[in-house]
Design a binder for these strands. Structure first.
Lengths: 229, 229
DNA sequence: ACATCCGATATCGTGTACGAACGACCGCGA
DNA sequence: TCGCGGTCGTTCGTACACGATATCGGATGT
């Protein structure tokens, strides 16, 4: 059946399913904690269950869903501690990346990155802002010539994206992030590795602080607030 | 204790297939570059092809195999640069882990780790030595209370294990690694984070040096030494 | 009468078998 | 020698059967 124009199938269906699910998770269409039933997804995309399973596996590898054997897949819902851990790891990783980037940073790349910051400043749509944000960081690290490192960073960023999205959607992006980005870039241009790393630390720390504050509204007397997971 | 990270469960056959393949890759039974045909593997384990595919996906996520769409899976063969990159990333990650471990290190754990070093010193079997080596590092980092970080480190270690195995199998383990382990542990006991991190750096750097030297026999006029991959 | 425990049923994930699609290889022809 | 088409092998996708797990209802005991 599904005899679709094969031209667009340049990817395997498992990949396209994974891609669409990833988008839906990251922009909040699928909230953390949602249970993903493979039959339902398969029907929804007009495919069979096997590629859906493969897609689940991919997403699990990326940390976006969790699969409990014989029980199914749920959209991953990290705890506040998990998020803090992610950010600490990212501090170490992005610190290394920016250190390696600095000596190889080309002027044209600087211009490029600067343009990205400007564009972010003019963007109000959360989804677009997030995409630009990711693009800025990944492009910034690409001159380091360490593709695995960049991939790891990308994964970690993806894992917390749903929450950042919720946060950014709730209150406007704010200028602070833009200032911090500018500070990072300036330090890189100046060739000052220590300053750039410090700026990254500050950037990530403030983001983590915001996020945790956002996730844990002041008084939550433990209890079974969210029994999920 | 620290059982396998994500989904280890002898329950589903996909996991057991993945586990056995992982072992075979890591101890060299399956050399890097080998093409894995799902029918063959399925027959060999007496299962169907679907769980084999799932197993491939898991191993790809761990960086042990590479899957090209419509072409199949091959055991991953990192280049020398890839290995160097892994080790640089590990320096950052393990550095962070040991820093977080130090304030929480319990005396009994120290005794435990010390025992592991002794056992390694008495071990000549490469496979056993490797297993103890991994165990030492992962146990050392476990008090940090950062499970994701430990999982990342474990993945990176796994990715280079096949090569370390080849190296260790070719020439006896040597005492240097043991001395370095001892130095790391001593610094931790002394509560000297900086010294511990320096020791880790030294440990990883010397390992990386050995590995690269082993992979690239002296005179190789660049060229297409190993066109693989 | 209420709560608890237990068992039948339904639902969903897992594994098997088969057909379809794609890429690789070989031989034929110009 | 180089390009082209056919054939084969392998992977990818589908449909179905099995098994495990969760849910709901009923029976039992206090």
């Amino acid at each position: 059946m599904a005899r679709r124009p094969a031209t667009l199938d340049r990817d395997t269906t498992a990949n396209v399913v994974a891609e669409r699910l990833r988008d839906e998770i990251q922009d909040g269409s699928l909230e953390p904690g949602t249970r993903l039933r493979q039959n339902e997804i398969a029907r929804r995309f007009g495919v069979s269950t096997t590629p859906v399973r493969e897609a689940f596996a991919q997403l699990q590898a990326e940390g976006l869903v969790r699969i409990d054997p014989h029980r199914g897949a749920v959209v991953f819902r990290p705890t506040a501690e998990d998020l803090l851990e992610f950010y600490e790891i990212r501090e170490a990783l992005e610190s290394l990346a920016v250190e390696r980037t600095i000596p190889r940073l080309q002027p044209e790349m600087v211009k490029d990155l600067s343009g990205l910051i400007d564009k972010m400043q003019r963007t109000t749509d959360p989804r677009k802002w997030l995409r630009l944000n990711d693009e800025f960081h990944l492009r910034l690290y690409s001159p380091a010539g360490m593709p695995r490192l960049v991939a790891l960073i990308e994964n970690l960023r993806d894992a917390s994206t749903p929450y950042i999205y919720m946060f950014v959607a709730s209150r406007p992006p704010g200028d602070r992030a833009n200032d911090e980005h500018r500070a990072i870039l300036d330090a890189c241009v100046a060739g000052d590795a220590a300053a750039a790393q410090a700026a990254i630390h500050e950037h990530l720390r403030s983001a983590a602080r915001d996020l945790v504050r956002f996730l844990e509204p002041p008084s939550d007397g433990d209890g079974a607030g969210t029994a999920g997971r």
